[in-house]
Design a binder for these strands. Sequence first.
RNA 1: GGGUUAGUAGCUCAGUUGGUUAGAGCGGAGCGCUCAUAACGCUUUGGUCGUGGGUUCAAGUCCUACCUAACCCA
Length: 666
Amino acid sequence: MTTDNKQKYLITSALPYVNGELHLGHLIGCWLPSDVYARFCRACGRDVLYVCGADEHGTPVVVGAMKEKMSPFDYSSKYYEKHLRAVKDFNLSFDLYGRTHTELQEKLIHELFLRLDEEGLIEERETLQPFSVDDNMFLADRQLLGTCPKCGYENARGDQCDKCSASYEATELLNPRSAISGSTNIEMRPTKNLFFLASKIEDKWKQWLETHAPKWSKTAIAIAQGWAKEGLQDTSITRDLSWGIPVNKEGFENKVFYVWFDAPWGYVSISQAANKDWATWWKNPDAHYAQFMGKDNVKFHAVFFPEQQLAMNDNWKTVDMLKAMNFLNFEGGKFSKSEKRGVFLDEAVSIAPADAWRYALIASAPETDDTDFTFARFADIVNKDLNGMLGNFVSRVCKLTDKNFGLNIPNAGALDSSLTAQVTEKIAELTAALDACEFRAAIVALRGLYAIGNEYMTLKEPWALVKSGDTEQAGAVLNECFQLIDLYARVSAPFIPDAAEKIQHVFNNAHDLSWPKEFEHRIQNGEAFTVPENLFSRIDDARVAELTEKYAKKEDNSIKPVVAKIVEVKNHPSRDDLHILTVDDGTNHDLQIVCGAPNVHVGLVGVLAPVGCVLPTMKKPISQRTVAGTESFGMMCSAAELGQGNNADEIIELDNNTEIGNVYAK
RNA sequence: GGGUUAGUAGCUCAGUUGGUUAGAGCGGAGCGCUCAUAACGCUUUGGUCGUGGGUUCAAGUCCUACCUAACCCA
């Protein structure tokens, strides 16, 4: 309820993992929407506790730390510092951006574990785990590498092959080796782990889901209901690792809790560290709790976390609004630091101001499906909405007024009821969208408000009124425009806080940025104002091209036809119309190729389509295959096959001096 | 392999419980205005709604199979 000033709002943004650089996808995936929502709630006068932090535990941190020859804590701290910088750069208004490797967290997890144990929901079970003798440790799934039993990929993970996406048991993996030392001395050994008996509280959770899920976002509901159908599985909550929260149970001294057992509770321990009366949110059934996360995290927030909360019977506040975002792609592909594809948060603000990112990303938030970020679109949004509609409106109003009336607000005339009605309707739309956490819809309403100002100017033509001598009427129009500027500062603030502050200071006596319920006229006749610097600047086509070139350079990994020379021609043993060629493609490996063209001869320089090459005339890549009983590793191309002309019978003959091995470009 | 979600104008997306000529923004084209950051306003262009079946008086909207993409699970 927007009107309820005292209502407590708990807002959490999924804790980003400390392994790897953060990019625009992380920003729009949970940080930005949650921040806009938190700022909106505060502006409405709600009592907000808004936390996030770094998720520091888990095996990838151990593996990453070893690679960089650091302790897990130093490694984690390195990334935590990067997170903090990004939080500051993008004006994220967390009460605290904390971390999970803290004493508070450990104390909390220990208490919670004892509670679950008391409730009879913890059980000891023995399982077989891969053990690296040389590393003297058990290996988690990601720490075990080997050859995929299905496709032969050599860097397949312990439980799944990244290449063919097959999955299997760790025991099926061929040539298993440790990702840590590379040692192949791997054995399956029994180990004891503690299991959380989720199956015992399935009914309670299902009941809870029925009353809570209907308010969530669509993606979240679907995923949770999928789990409800399948039933809750008992899950192992301990791991044979040295990095994490140590298990406080006899016989488990060398183990830690599974990262997903402790991570969600990081919201609580960070709340405890935030210097607020945390329990008035977390133990308050009347509070409203909104969670923001990427779609890959839904299971943990809709199932894993609440089932623990419910199991404890300690009145924990469970999620009311679960907002799951889809993923952001970048110029047609995934973000990849190693391939230098994408904008990462350490350099984003050097490309454009935080507000530009905030607005443009929210405007194209991946709410219903994965969304592709492009600089062209980014520039369109910044140029049109921020620069053209908002920035330019403030500028034209201030300058026209200054020129004709000086630096004081002209007197108001009769209230323009049609304008007021229009504006109030849009405010209601915007407020409803934000309350429902529908961010694209919110931006649509927001830009609708910006549009009203410009339309009003064109309709009333205050410059023409001045020229015709009707200064009173011109002043009245401009007065309305200043009321709109004041409104724009308020409604824009959750989205673009820096610009909102600048707009706020157009008026020498800055007015507060509380959330408006209707079109209020707060600006008094004669109030002093200042003509501001331009609020935003354009991103022109040249800049878009430059940025695309720098950050979205497509690494073309496709296999292309190459220039190759026939070094040997043999007749096919069983087919008169075929020849078996030996072809030099410029590498040191001569290739055997079966060819049916009549014009083959030793010394011919032609075009080879290697295995994996996709010719313009074909849909599927050339495969390594057996032609009439003979292996063929590619194809010598005719002009027609390369999409050049009609000659499909003979293979292309190039000049004998053409350099072998080069990509055939034409 | 199983589950879920998505596939609608050049681009990004809306399309309520199936119901008259499928909507919006951007881009393109044209006009207007000149207060303003070559900005703003108005008009206009453009879609066999992934594919094939099916249900219905009526389907973008329901059912089914398939294709493509993503996520989760095995």
